[in-house]
Design a binder for these strands. Structure first.
Length: 447
RNA sequence: UCCGCGGUAGCUCAAUCGGCAGAGCGGGCGGCUGUUAACCGCUUGGUUGGAGGUUCGAGUCCUCCCCGCGGAGCCA
């Protein structure tokens, strides 16, 4: 009895008779010769069913098999450079072909489809090679995140998803019912992380976060995953060093372990190979100057070839600004010291220049925008209370948060990295909706 | 919420000035021993998003509504 193998491991079985269990992705009927591409979840392989080599009923089954039928194939693994698939270069010369279930007419063809149709069929769309590759890269990104943090002294401490009030007070939250009292789905775990560092030093939380903003862009989801490390005894410069090490590790690890998937996605990996420390650092002041020079020179940016608009000091960057700035560098770039007024209440103002704060965003190259937002946190309780008031927020919900500064306050910093934007960048995708199995975009909750 | 674009066969799209609603793919039947989204022949397939209006005649023009896409703001 031949052994069941996974397509991923096919190179180890050349010349052996093996069994593959999977689903039919594509069939080419050449009369007495049937080319059937089978995927088993770990890869895609071409099965060659030649009439003379299989029992008559097996050949009939192969000739009639429909796309996405579940099948069990027995055959001999052969090296052949013509064989398509992932990893590719190997095919199975069938000796038997059994259909477990003959699939009904399948709605998704290996052709072009519209976005609306594909999202309505997301449960089936996930089976296609491109989506398969993206989800495998995502899983590698998530493993790299956890591995790096766990091996650098961080303790994973998960933070609540049901929260009593707005963490930052600015963005729209999803409201739910907590036994008669309003509760909100978390938009960040950061404030809880800050409590946790005083118990554990370096911590991170990693889970879904929710934003009810009516955002409809290629960079936004209503539900997305974020990893948020928080570090005691850490200032902004040390934070940026940690971030560039962390991001570089993630990218290099995907390059190393998911090369086949990046090939399926036709990603130009040379752009990713540059992603090693140190990353360039520019101040907000310098960034504004860069943008305005470009605006004056009439520079245009992709993807819509729009002109870079001029901006005033104090404005936040729009998408064309971010794209332009990122395009000036061959790896992610930090922008630090944003205007205090444009940022969250908890960020530490720069001593001697309180109009800017110790914050830094990390912009991914190629127009993928902000993948990290981070800052040094305010550590003085009186200044914090003042800032909360200045932002028009109530003090009562932040009582515990202010407490953290009253019992052994230390300089500390942290950041949040958006998983979907990072995966979209690494994979070279046009929209973050493809980076999560079941995306929650505005106006869509099915499937 | 605002700005722009769109909705025609299962899918992707076409239909000139308002004049017989079409093609490719998919499905079905047949052919082929090296296909890579194969190819060739035949065949199947329609409440043109919905409601109203103008007209001899509406996919096409007008009004309202619904849905989707892209972007802005905000953010990761």
């Amino acid at each position: 009895m031949a052994r069941i193998i996974s397509v991923e491991q096919i190179a180890d079985h050349v010349g052996e008779e093996v069994v593959i269990r999977g689903w039919v992705y594509l069939r080419t009927d050449k009369g007495r010769l049937q080319f059937i591409r089978v995927r088993d979840g770990t890869g895609f392989v071409q099965v060659v069913v030649f009439k003379k080599n299989v029992p008559p009923e097996a050949f009939q089954a192969a000739r009639k098999v429909t796309q996405e039928s579940s099948v069990i194939v027995t055959g001999i693994v052969r090296e052949d450079e013509r064989a398509p698939g992932v990893p590719g270069g190997y095919e199975i010369d069938a000796r038997d072909f059994v259909v477990v279930q003959q699939a009904e007419e399948y709605p998704i063809q290996p052709k072009e489809h519209g976005v609306d149709f594909l999202l309505d069929h997301r449960h089936l769309w996930l089976r296609t090679p491109r989506q398969w590759a993206i989800m495998r890269v995502r899983a590698e990104v998530e493993r790299a995140i956890v591995d790096w943090l766990d091996s650098h002294g961080f303790l994973r401490v998960d933070t609540p998803i049901l929260t009593p009030s707005a963490a930052e007070g600015t963005t729209t939250l999803f409201e739910t019912d907590f036994h008669g009292r309003p509760a909100y789905l978390a938009q960040t775990g950061q404030l809880y992380n800050e409590a946790n560092i005083f118990a554990f030093g370096k911590v991170y939380c990693f889970g879904p976060t929710f934003r009810a903003e009516k955002s409809k862009t290629r960079r936004h989801l209503q539900e997305f995953w974020m990893v948020e490390p928080e570090i005691a005894w850490c200032d902004l410069d040390e934070l940026m060093e940690i971030e560039e090490q962390f991001v570089s590790y993630i990218v290099q690890r995907v390059l190393e372990r998911r090369a086949n998937e990046l090939k399926v996605l036709e990603r130009d990996t040379r752009l990713l190979e540059n992603v090693v420390p140190p990353f360039p650092r520019i101040s907000y002041d310098e960034a504004v100057e860069m943008v305005n020079k470009a605006a004056a020179a009439g520079v245009r940016v992709p993807p819509h070839d729009e002109p870079v608009p001029p901006m005033e000091w104090g404005d936040d960057f729009g998408a064309p600004h971010e794209t332009y700035i990122a395009s000036q560098f061959d790896r992610p770039v930090f922008i630090h010291h944003f205007p205090t007024a444009a940022k969250a209440f908890y960020m530490e103002p720069e001593p001697g220049r309180p109009e800017v704060c110790r914050s830094a965003d990390l912009l991914a190259p190629e127009g993928y925008g902000e993948i990290i937002g981070g800052s040094e946190r305010m550590s003085d309780p009186d200044k914090l209370v003042e800032s909360i008031k200045k932002h028009g927020l109530p003090l009562e919900p932040y009582k515990w948060y202010i407490d953290l500064r009253r019992y052994g306050s230390v300089p500390h910093s942290g950041f949040g990295l958006g998983v979907e934007r990072t995966v979209a960048w690494i994979c070279g995708l046009h929209h973050v909706r493809e980076t999560i199995a079941f995306p929650r975009v505005l106006g869509r909750i099915y499937p």
